[in-house]
C-alpha cells in the first residue's frame, strides 16, 4: 500500500510524532544540513539533492560517548545507561540507511553485540527519502545499492513535487502513516517509473566483477604510493563516511569516565603499537587500508562491499581525491602477482 503525504503537512506530522518519540530530521547548521532533534521551531532541510554533511551513523554510534563512569564516593564503576527512548529518523537517504545495516554486522553480531548500538537500533524507526535526483558524486548503483534501496528502512518516501509518496516497508513503518490518503494505482505507477528512472540513469562508476581479487593482488603495488602523495592524512573521508566505524576507547582520568571516540585509519597514531612500532608507518599503507577495507576486507567478513556510494569522501576531500577514480585506476593497473590455478 502506498500513501500520500503532503509536503505542507510534513512539519506538522513530525511535530506530532514528538509526543511519542524523539524525532530527528535534517536541519540547517550554518550552510549544511545535519540530523538534529525536531523541536518547536525546527526547519526541515531536505530540498538539496545531496546528503547531510555529517553522517547519520552518529545517531547510532555517537562520535564520543561515555561507556562507564567511576564513582569516587562509592568507589565503584557504573556502566552508562543504554538509551531507552523510542526514536524516529526522518529523511535519511537510502545509502545512509544501508550503511547502518552494514554496521549491524559489526555492532550487532550474535557473539558480541554492543549494548549501546543495539539499544539505539531497536528503538529507531527509519523513514527514508529516496533520491530522484542523484548527485554527480553519488555512486550507489556501483556498490550493490541504489537511489531507492530499501535496506534498513521502515518506510521510503518518493518526491512527487508537492507530495511525498510513502511506502511503508515494515510494521513499524505502517504504524506511522496509517491515517494518510492511499495513492491511486496510477500514482503508484508514476512512483515506480521515477524510481526506475533514477536507478537506470545513474552512471556506473566502476565494475565490481573481479575487483576484490584484483585489489588483493595489488597489495604491494606502487599505485598506493601514488594516491598517498597528495593525501593530507586528515580524517575527513573516514569521519564523514557512513560505514567507517573504527573507534578508540580512552580513559578520561580527570572526568573519571571511559569514553569511546571515533578513530580513523588515516591517522598515524591509529595503528601505532605500545612498542613504538607502527605497522602502517606511512600514508601509503593508510590510504591502502581505507580503500582495501571497503572493497576487499568487508567482503571477507560479511560478503558485502563496505561502501554505499554516498559520495561524501568525494565531495569533501580537500585535495580532490576521488575514491571512484582510485578504484578505476587500481582496476587499470595490471597486477604483478601471477595467477596460480
Amino acid at each position: 500500500m502506498t500513501y500520500l503525504l503532503k509536503k505542507s503537512e510534513v512539519n506538522q506530522t513530525l511535530r506530532a510524532w514528538t509526543s511519542k518519540a524523539h524525532v530527528y530530521a535534517p536541519q540547517k547548521v550554518q550552510k549544511y544540513a545535519q540530523f538534529l532533534p525536531v523541536g518547536e521551531d525546527f526547519e526541515l532541510s531536505v530540498e538539496e539533492p545531496h546528503n547531510t554533511r555529517f553522517p547519520p551513523k552518529a545517531l547510532f554510534l555517537p562520535q564520543s560517548e561515555t561507556l562507564l563512569k567511576y564513582n569516587p564516593q562509592k568507589r565503584e564503576l557504573e556502566s552508562a545507561k543504554t538509551p531507552d527512548q523510542p526514536r524516529i529518523i526522518f529523511g535519511i537517504r537510502p545509502c545512509d540507511a544501508k550503511a547502518v545495516t552494514l554496521l549491524d554486522s559489526v555492532f550487532s553480531s550474535e557473539d558480541n553485540p554492543d549494548p549501546f548500538w543495539q539499544a539505539r537500533r531497536d528503538q529507531s524507526v527509519l523513514v527514508g527519502l529516496g533520491c530522484d535526483q542523484p548527485c554527480a558524486t553519488c555512486f550507489c548503483t556501483s556498490v550493490e545499492s541504489g537511489p531507492f534501496d530499501r535496506s534498513g528502512l521502515d518506510a521510503i518516501l518518493t518526491d512527487l513535487g508537492d507530495t511525498y509518496a510513502v511506502e511503508p516497508l515494515t510494521e513499524r513503518g505502517v504504524s506511522l502513516f496509517e491515517n494518510l490518503t492511499v495513492a491511486s494505482a496510477e500514482t503508484t505507477q508514476t512512483i515506480q517509473a521515477i524510481q526506475e528512472k533514477a536507478t537506470r540513469e545513474m552512471p556506473i562508476a566502476f565494475g565490481r566483477e573481479g575487483l576484490k581479487a584484483h585489489l588483493d593482488e595489488l597489495f604491494e603495488n606502487e599505485i598506493w604510493e601514488d594516491f598517498a602523495k597528495s593525501c593530507l592524512g586528515c580524517g575527513i573521508c573516514t569521519f564523514l563516511c557512513p560505514t567507517c566505524f573504527c573507534f578508540d576507547i580512552v580513559d578520561e582520568v580527570r572526568k573519571s569516565t571511559r569514553e569511546r571516540n571515533w578513530d580513523t585509519c588515516m591517522f598515524k597514531v591509529y595503528s601505532i603499537e605500545a612498542s613504538g612500532h607502527n605497522p602502517r608507518p606511512s600514508r601509503r599503507e593508510r590510504t591502502r587500508q581505507r580503500l582495501m577495507h571497503k572493497y576487499s576486507y568487508w567482503l571477507d567478513h560479511t560478503g558485502q562491499t563496505g561502501c554505499t556510494g554516498c559520495g561524501r569522501c568525494v565531495r569533501y576531500c580537500p585535495v580532490g581525491l576521488d575514491i571512484r577514480a582510485m578504484v578505476r585506476k587500481s582496476v587499470a593497473t595490471p597486477s604483478e602477482v601471477p595467477h596460480v590455478d
Partner: peptide, 8 residues
C-alpha cells in the same frame, strides 16, 4: 583531479 571543485 576527478572532482571539478578541487584540483589536486
Amino acid at each position: 583531479a576527478d572532482t571539478p571543485l578541487r584540483p589536486q
